[in-house]
Every structure is written in C-alpha cells, then in structure tokens.
Design a protein around this nucleic acid. Structure first.
Lengths: 212, 212
DNA sequence: ACCTGAACACCGTTCAAGT
DNA sequence: ACCTGAACACCGTTCAAGT
C-alpha cells in the first residue's frame, strides 16, 4: 500500500502543528519527516531547507492576521481598540508569532493595523509628519508591549522578583516614603490594565493640540 | 610545556568574547574548547553545561549594567534622560542583551533604572498606585522600544517595505488624502527621534494632573 | 581536584540512485 | 516529477579513566 503523494501544504501544516505544540525549537527536519511518514529528504524537495520552511510558515502567519475593525466613539478610544485587537491576535499564536519575531517581520505583520491607525489619526485632525509620527509611536508602543509581555511570560520567576526588591526591609536608597507606592510595586503587573493605561496615555498626548 | 590551569573566569571571558563577535548561535562548546586549547569536557567541569554557561554570562551582563544618572531640570526631562541612558546601554551590547532577552531577564536588568524612575515620578507629585503605574508604563515603553528596534535591525529589508506600501500608485482604501503624511510614512523611521517623541509624549501624559 | 578521549544520540544537508 | 538511504560534518552531553 502506497501513501498519497506528499504535498507542500501537507508539509507546512504538519510543521505548523509541530511549532504550535512544541515551539520553534521543537521543529526538526527529522521529526517532521517521521510525523509525515516520509523520508527526511522528501521535505527538502517540497519546501527547501529548514530556513525556507520557516520562511513559509512565517509568511502564512503574516497573511493570516485579519483586518482590524476599530470600535469606540472618540479617536482615542478607536485607536485603543485597534491596539487591543492587535495584542489579542498576537497573543493567540504565541509560538508562530515568536517565529515571525525571530525573523524580524513583526512590523510587516502590523501593516494592516497601520492603515487603520492612519485613518484614525487623520480623523483626529493630525496631518503630515505629525500624523506619521503619531502612527509610528503607537505602532512601536503596541509591538513593544507585546514583546515585553512575551518576554515576561517566558521567565515567570525573575530573581529577585520585582516585588521582592521593593518589599525589602530597607528599600533602595532613592526610594521615597510612600507605602502605597511600595505596596503597588510589590504586586504583580496586570498586563491588560497596564496596556490600556499606557496606550491611552500615549494616544491622548499625541492627539492633543500642537504645543508650539 | 603545560598550560596554566583553566579557571571559570577564563571560560566565561572566552565565551563572552565569542558571543560578542558571532552572536549566541556562534557559541558552541566545541568551539569554545578549541579557543581555550582544552578538551570540551573540561568546560563542563568548570561551568556546567551550555545552559548554565549562558546563565552565568547573562548574570554577568545584568550586574554590569551601571547605575543611572538622571539629567535635566523638569521631571519629564529627567525621565526622558533615564530612558535614553537605558536605550544607549542596551544598544552597546546587542548580542549579550539578546541573550539576556532570550532568557527573559530584560526586566530584571532594568531594576536600577526602575528605582530612578520611582524617584522622579515621586518628585513630580505622583503617589501610590498611580505612581507605580507611571513607572511601569515608562519601563515597558523603553524595553519594548529597544526590542522593536533590535527586531527591525535584524531584518533591514522588510518585504514590502513600509515605505513601498504607502508609495503605491493607489494607496490602501482607508488612506486619506494627505500627501505630506504619505511622504512621511514613505521615509525610513528615525529611531532616535521617534524614541524621544514617544517617551516624552507618554511621560507628559502620565505626569499630567489627575483627570478624575 | 582537574583534565582527557571515546562514545552516544542527536542535528541539517547533500548526493547519487531509484521509479 | 517525486522519493529513497547512505554519508558527511556538525552538535551537546556522559562516562570511565587518567593524573
């Protein structure tokens, strides 16, 4: 009994599922071949070497990132909603996004969102270079935040934890007398809350009437 | 003629120099042994396996991050100067920082800066949970920005480049009529300028009088 | 206490040979 | 056009043996 001929899509699908389950490091050419019940060398015929295979996976992921639908009444709210949608999409595919990131295409993936941001910033009355700066500032902010978040999740136990440092019997030299502040910094970060607060603060400032 | 006995510090120094030159991927146990003129297995005796070796390198890098000296007159300027100093330090050791990042310790490295930020935010009149939020927002902003920057540098040629998309004969559907904006988005990002603009915008908003 | 070579179980990739 | 096994040059790690 002969198996049906191998296709490029089959290889990509199997590779994607391996990455989703075990991360990029869990994708080996030999393991993939075993999964497909074929010889390692067949994979090379269909998708090229490992580098090209990852490229293909990344390209898939990038195009799969859906369109963005802003919601909310004010420009600030609509921009915050775009940012939140992006964050949600990125966090839904952590391993594949890591691949996209490793290959430096995170921003490429953000182009659809960039168009939405341009629209909103323009609606808020910004023009020209100032509008472009605002769009990029928000874009960097969101991408950066998601990267930091992934960073933190990868190492849940920092040593010493942020909290411990501020909970020391004698706080660091520059620490002012503010028990509520110390307490707040001892608690773990609430990413959702911090994300919304940060994006809103940045956006409000960027959309504010020109200073000079 | 016998060589002087191998020490842990020698191993770490050689490993660090390999990483600085060829990146984390350029550090192999066998290559390191060759560099030191010793057997591979000696390395294991001194620093344990590769994972532990990297841990040690990372720990070194984290402690080497010097103290932060804020400069400027207003709290906003001083916070911006702290952020700029951090960015500079991170960018001076790209490969080692990549290692720190890979191991999820980027934030740990930022603790000294966090103390400086707490001081400045407090001086600006923020207290308690609101002060803590402000510190963390700036911290995430700076770390995130540097990560995005590294991300971009790793892949200088995005496809299509951000500029190309906006330079298309027919711009994306949502694009408003704003030639200056289109032109601005077609130009490459100026990271230094965007960084200062972003941090300043965020900080001003965070330090502004409480809304409600 | 420190160093060694041999060996094991993995990699990605190439190549010549099959059908 | 598609698939194969064998071989090459790498890995990290372990282990028993040396001094």
């Amino acid at each position: 009994m002969t198996r049906s001929p191998l296709t490029r899509d089959e290889v990509l699908a199997a590779a994607a599922s391996l990455v989703k389950e075990h991360g990029p490091g869990g994708l080996t050419m030999r393991g993939l071949a075993a999964e497909l019940g074929t010889a390692v060398t067949s994979i090379y015929w269909h998708v090229g070497n490992r580098e090209q295979l990852l490229d293909a996976l990344v390209a898939r992921t990038v195009t799969e990132m859906g369109a963005i639908r802003p919601s909310g009444r004010t420009p600030v709210e609509r921009i915050v909603s775009v940012a939140g949608g992006l964050r949600r999409e990125l966090r839904a595919r952590p391993h594949l996004i890591a691949l996209v990131h490793e290959r430096g295409l995170t921003e490429r993936m953000f182009l659809p969102a960039q168009q939405a941001l341009v629209h909103e910033v323009h609606a808020a009355g910004l023009r020209g270079a100032r509008a472009a700066d605002a769009v990029r500032a928000v874009q960097f902010q969101v991408v950066g935040f998601v990267l930091v978040e992934r960073n933190r999740e990868r190492s849940p136990a920092q040593s010493p934890a942020e909290g411990e440092l501020w909970a020391l019997p004698q706080a660091p030299p520059t620490a002012p007398q503010d028990p509520a502040l110390t307490r707040a910094l001892s608690r773990p970060v609430d990413p959702e809350q911090l994300f919304l607060l940060s994006v809103r603060a940045l956006t409000e400032s960027l959309l504010a009437p020109a200073p000079g």
